[in-house]
Computed example of a mutant assay.
Amino acid sequence: MVTGAGGGIGRDIALSAAAQGAKVVVNDIGASLSGDGLDAGPAQQVVDEIRAAGGEAVASTDSVSEPHTAQQIVTAALDTFGRIDGIVNNAGILRDRFFHKMSDQEWDAVIRVHLYGGYYVSRAAAPHFKAQESGAYVHMTSTSGLIGNYGQANYSAAKLGIAALSKSIALDMQKFNVRSNCIAPFAWSRMTGSVPAETPEEKQRVERFKQMTPAKIAPLAVTLMSDASKVNGQIFAVRNNEIILMSQPRPVRSVHRSEGWTPETVLEHALPALEASFFDLERSGDVFCWDPV
């Protein structure tokens, strides 16, 4: 089951999974990038492509953003194919705005689709995975959340939350042989079409993005859903032909004072001692600054 599979990354994952023999639920409400409008066409078009190539697929146009409709997506898999074995939580929208200008509605809409949607869909499948003692989740996170980006407080918060959700699922369900991993995809799609391209540096970054097609993400996503993969609780990035294992937060450095701390000693001792290990205020493009290969 692939959400947001009517185009871009989700479409290529659905096509690749079907080519490997999977029976696929292609889920997409057919909305615009901002979440407006509904159209059953995109999901059905991908289903038609899969069937034309000899595969099996069914379309779902239910939203991930409400628990009862997320349940209906899982039900579509059960009713059509009799079971569910893998889920790619890929559905998403953007409402980019600088934090100090962001409206409550812009915050809520993005959190609801990405983070709530990932939870609702995952939770709906969990009893079936538990009962059959198998299953795999692949969640789409983003370096906007893992590292940072301008004008995306809503998206970044949701995507970092997804990484934590995935880790919690991996921990809670490992005893049932259920796995959960994340991918931070670099690919030119509707979701990256709003990347700023005003300065020469930004324009150069966009040109690098355009080299990275959605099809590059599919091999890792399909592999992580496969029974042949035993990987669990990891965060990957895919950047053109690179597969990157991302770090997860761990202690970097510590200071200790046997008598405890006061605001004065924190200022005089702790912060200066830790300062050499502080992280720079970076955005995704500062860290991934080399050309894709």
Rank of each mutant, 00 (worst) to 15 (best):
M1H: 11
M1C: 11
V2Q: 05
G6N: 06
G7Y: 04
G7T: 13
G8K: 13
A14D: 07
A17Y: 09
A18F: 03
V24T: 05
A31I: 02
D36Q: 09
L38Y: 09
L38N: 10
A40H: 04
Q44E: 13
V46R: 00
I50Y: 00
G55F: 01
T69S: 15
T69N: 06
A70D: 05
T75V: 10
T75A: 14
T75Q: 15
A76R: 14
A77H: 07
L78A: 08
D79S: 13
D79L: 09
I84R: 08
V88A: 07
G92Y: 05
G92T: 11
I93W: 05
R95C: 07
S103K: 06
S103D: 08
Q105C: 00
E106R: 09
V110Y: 05
R112T: 15
V113D: 09
V113K: 02
H114P: 04
H114I: 02
Q132K: 12
G135K: 06
A136W: 03
A136Y: 04
T141V: 13
T143W: 01
S144R: 01
G145E: 03
L146M: 07
I147R: 01
G151P: 00
A153S: 14
A157H: 02
G161R: 10
I162N: 06
I162V: 15
A163Q: 03
L171S: 12
Q174N: 13
Q174K: 14
K175H: 12
S180D: 05
F186M: 06
S189V: 11
M191Y: 03
P196S: 06
A197W: 00
E198W: 01
T199F: 08
T199H: 06
P200K: 03
E201D: 12
K203I: 08
K203Y: 01
Q204K: 12
R205F: 15
T213A: 11
T213C: 00
P214V: 10
I217H: 03
P219D: 04
P219T: 07
L224W: 01
M225K: 02
A228F: 03
K230L: 12
F236M: 03
F236S: 04
R239G: 01
N240E: 08
N241V: 01
I244S: 00
V252E: 08
S254D: 14
H256A: 13
R257V: 14
P263Y: 06
L267K: 14
L267M: 13
H269Q: 14
L271Y: 09
A276R: 14
D286Q: 11
